[in-house]
Write a protein that binds this DNA or RNA. Structure first.
Lengths: 356, 356
DNA sequence: TGCGCGCCTGTGAACGTTAACACGTAGACG
DNA sequence: CGTCTACGTGTTAACGTTCACAGGCGCGCA
């Protein structure tokens, strides 16, 4: 009697308990079970209790595939990831996931190896087939945001962690310009004549915005704007840029586009015999977990990746539930403010180098 | 005619194209479309082409929810994660995800805040409701593996990255004992009388296994086994342990349970005026992305987290497709070998400290 | 010629859920 | 006392796919 179908090959699939079983045990119809499950108001309290009991005693689990089939929503969100192995993206992913769980959503990930339009659209496609209700792209480059704009309009997308201010999709990002300004101004305030910059890759908006913020701050202070070298986001790149900087005696302060670059710069300066912060001050960006234990502990701009993730989820949810009829539409761009964390790698300029 | 249902409220859902539409356009039955989609052999070449054309011109996407409902498999794998913000777990996650994609699977994540049995089982439950075909747990502690054993037997689970050799579930892990031996022996070979150890948390198998490997190696070499201090996995903990080690003049070599601890130890030694490697040699574990740019560049034990992820996926797939009838069952435990990477933080012992 | 056996295709019935509608009862209100 | 509405519940029909089975057609072989 438990198996309804004799399955000709003899290997019976382990018939799982469904609504009808619960209904039979509770002495109601399957629809009532459904109502209990979906917290429909019109169910007598006593009936509800009986159904709940039956569910418990049968260890019933609702089949979400069936539910998705008919409701066309899966309570699942998709995440498009890139380089999720790095601290920043990994933290955002985690922030999104944990906020999603609290909101009752499951999270599926689809990473891409490169950020070109084709791969991003492919990822969107994979997620669509799994009928996700919305998508968050951890999208450091603008190509992603543009690709997102080509997604089917029925699918809400949000980009997090790259450039702000794109009209292609709602975005959540750090105020990179502000961060750069905090770092640069901090060094100027310490009396440095100017601040050099060890930049990240030129085609990443995060890098570009930090350069712009740094440049503007110097300009506003009437300081010379030194030329910029570009590199990748890692310590090796910082090491190379650091060598060049160490050779130039006029360099007394360096703002690095992230903490890993700063680590490389610190090592290059150390090898060149320059003391930090006595000879040269160094400031990073990100506040990675252990940057407080570099030699010396790194002054840096803290960004809260987890918060970024949570905010992007909140924004996505707002856009998903927003109906044209509602009064005020959710914002299209959210900017999160970073904070300066002063530690030991930045200090006052030597008297002979102070700007006039 | 496109909308079949006039939807009384006037808001017509955007009827999406389904198999029947494709079938009609191609002049076949929906079942034939299904066959084409599933690469069934018995379809005439010309028919297949016609169906494919129709699918393209209608921009057809198969509805996976419906497919899951009837086949009871979702082509989705579940991942239970913990602290996925750290480099190791993040890399494993990425390794799993990218291998899963190549194998045609989607990946859903369910992280837990703590590793107790209840939360892990809750995560399994969430994944089960979304009818995942299998589960990989990034499971550094044994409680996870035990919890996994309580999952419904129809659900294949694999644990990765913690202790090897648990009978509760198949596991994939690094040979921590071997790694510890490589590090310790390397230092002994450099002439150090003995090797001190800055350990991780005592209740993590990874930490315990490294201690054991280190202890065994010292014992085999007839060296004194110094007492162990425990800490957490971060640089702060290494910094604290490093202070104590710096005070003890007999310390000439330190093996750290991971690179972050090593970073803290390096800073503590630096502040105490000890030179590395001239006065004290330091070896880490993990080979994090930038450990080659610490001051000095860190000698460490490299573990390939991505490989760990890929192997765990492969093992899961083997266990999932394995039928009792098949000749040899897949292995229950896979051990991946780490490798020693010698850089500048380890060097020969000072003559007066060489062991006799 | 007749029979069997491959190939290719179509028809109907699942899968487990929610949506739409219908029905019966009880209280409110004219 | 009739009608209207709200509530609680059951019945039936989707949702879009795959599975099981039934044919038709062509070919080889007795």
């Amino acid at each position: 009697m438990p198996t309804r179908k004799p399955t000709p090959d003899g290997v019976a699939r382990p018939r799982l308990t469904v609504m009808r079983d619960v209904a039979k045990l509770a002495g109601v119809s399957h629809q009532t079970v459904s109502r209990v499950l979906n917290n429909h108001p019109n169910v007598r309290e006593e009936t509800r209790a009986r159904v709940l009991d039956a569910m418990r005693s049968l260890n019933y689990r609702r089949n979400l595939a069936a539910r998705t089939l008919v409701t066309r929503q899966s309570d699942t969100l998709g995440i498009i990831g890139f380089e999720t192995t790095l601290f920043g993206p990994a933290s955002m992913l985690h922030g999104i996931e944990s906020a999603a769980r609290d909101a009752g959503y499951m999270v599926s990930i689809a990473s891409v190896r490169d950020l070109d339009r084709r791969q991003v659209l492919e990822a969107v496609d994979r997620l669509t087939q799994h009928s996700v209700d919305g998508v968050i792209a951890i999208a450091p480059k603008q190509s992603v945001t543009h690709a997102l704009a080509q997604a089917p309009p029925s699918l809400q997308c949000v980009a997090v962690g790259g450039a702000g201010e794109s009209d292609a999709a709602p975005t959540v990002s750090i105020d990179n310009a502000l961060g750069a300004r905090l770092a640069t101004q901090h060094l100027l305030d310490l009396g440095h004549a100017t601040v050099h910059h060890a930049a990240g890759p030129p085609d990443w908006p995060e890098s570009a915005e930090r350069i712009e913020g740094w440049r503007r701050t110097l300009y506003a202070a009437g300081a010379v704007v030194p030329p910029v070298e570009h590199g990748w986001w890692d310590a090796e790149s910082g090491y190379e840029q650091g060598h060049a900087l160490a050779r130039d005696p006029s360099v007394t302060a360096v703002f690095c586009s992230n903490d890993r670059i700063a680590l490389g710069v610190l090592r290059a300066l150390h090898e060149a015999g320059k003391r930090v912060p006595d000879d040269v001050s160094v400031v990073g960006f990100d506040d990675m977990p252990d940057s407080g234990f570099f030699v010396p502990p790194l002054t840096t701009v803290h960004q809260d990746f987890g918060e970024l993730g949570r905010r992007s989820l909140a924004l996505l949810l707002e856009h998903m539930t927003h109906t044209p009829a509602a009064e005020l539409p959710p914002p299209n761009h959210v900017l999160v403010s970073p904070q300066l964390v002063v530690r030991a790698s930045s200090g006052p300029a030597r008297p002979d180098c102070t700007r006039t």
